[in-house]
């Protein structure tokens, strides 16, 4: 499904300072991959580059979805192809109501795929069901998108969008951080409910805790812009026990 080869990226409009430095990753349909790694390693950058954020410039390598490069596609076009990013820090958007936003988003996706749009009534029914499913306070749906939401409420709102849009490749950037035990379970349920042979997930996380609820097929360690280790779920256990010390480059080798 997803094939990332030798991906290099830096912040657009700065000279040097590559953040991703030759990242390789293959995600097959139905797989769940976890990415762990020390702070500042480039996990969020990778997630945002996948979603097409133009603040970053891809300076080398390629990202292929179903065999086709998506590097040139705008964020909305990637979304139409089934990519979804649950943000580490979702933006607060004054005056945009969650209901209207999701209706517009789903309409745009359906239109791009040549599918029939839902009527207002059909969408309302779907959305209400998803609101119940992710157990988000329905009063929040009357407010501006994410505005004044607590950290946990924002994450639940990301799960609501995930559940509503049903993407084929969902990237969750630390959706589990800052969540209470119940909320964590809801994140896990949202993901597990969507797991299917043709849908894949990339979970960026710092905690093995999430991986008890969502058992990954593959665990990667991302350090300084590269995947330095790939293994099974046991890798997450080792990291929790030993930290990242053994993955860090030797001080002498740093900058080489």
């Amino acid at each position: 499904m997803l094939e990332v080869t030798n991906l290099h990226a830096k912040v657009a409009d700065v000279e040097n300072g590559e953040i991703l430095r030759g990242l390789n990753m293959t995600v097959n349909p139905g797989e769940v991959h976890a990415i762990m790694g020390p702070n500042g390693g480039g996990k969020s950058t990778f997630a945002n580059v996948l979603a097409g954020r133009t603040d970053y410039e891809v300076t080398g390598g390629d990202i292929k979805l179903d065999g086709e490069s998506i590097i040139e596609l705008a964020p909305d076009e990637r979304s139409h192809k089934g990519i979804f990013l649950a943000f580490q820090y979702p933006a607060e958007i004054p005056g945009v109501r969650p209901w209207q936003f999701m209706k517009a988003a789903l309409d745009a996706q359906k239109e791009a795929r040549g599918e029939k749009k839902l009527s207002v009534r059909e969408f309302s029914k779907l959305f209400d069901a998803k609101v119940k499913q992710v157990k988000i306070n329905p009063d929040l749906m009357k407010r501006s998108l994410n505005e004044g939401f607590s950290g946990g409420e924002k994450k639940r709102n990301e799960m609501l969008q995930l559940a509503t849009l049903e993407p084929r490749l969902a990237v969750l950037d630390e959706t589990d951080s800052g969540l209470d035990v119940d909320a964590m379970r809801i994140v896990a349920e949202s993901v597990n409910a969507l797991r299917s042979p043709d849908r894949s997930f990339i979970l960026v996380t710092h905690y093995n805790r999430l991986l008890h609820h969502i058992v990954p097929d593959v665990v990667h360690v991302l350090v300084k812009g590269q995947l330095v280790q790939t293994g099974g779920p046991e890798l997450a256990v080792e990291i929790e026990r030993d930290g990242y010390k053994r993955f860090m480059p030797e001080p002498a080798a740093a900058g080489a």
């Binding site: 979603a51 097409g52 954020r53 133009t54 603040d55 705008a74 964020p75 909305d76 990637r78 979304s79 139409h80 979804f84 990013l85 943000f87 979702p90 933006a91 958007i93 004054p94 005056g95 945009v96 209207q100 936003f101 999701m102 517009a104 988003a105 789903l106 745009a108 996706q109 791009a112 501006s144 969008q161 849009l165």
Partner: peptide
């Protein structure tokens, strides 16, 4: 970017932000 990442076109996303500001 947030709005577009959900599939909304650039034009519609900008409209939502401007209308949201006015709202």
């Amino acid at each position: 970017f947030y709005l577009m990442s959900r599939g909304v076109s650039r034009h519609d996303a900008a409209f939502m932000l401007v209308a949201g500001f006015a709202g």
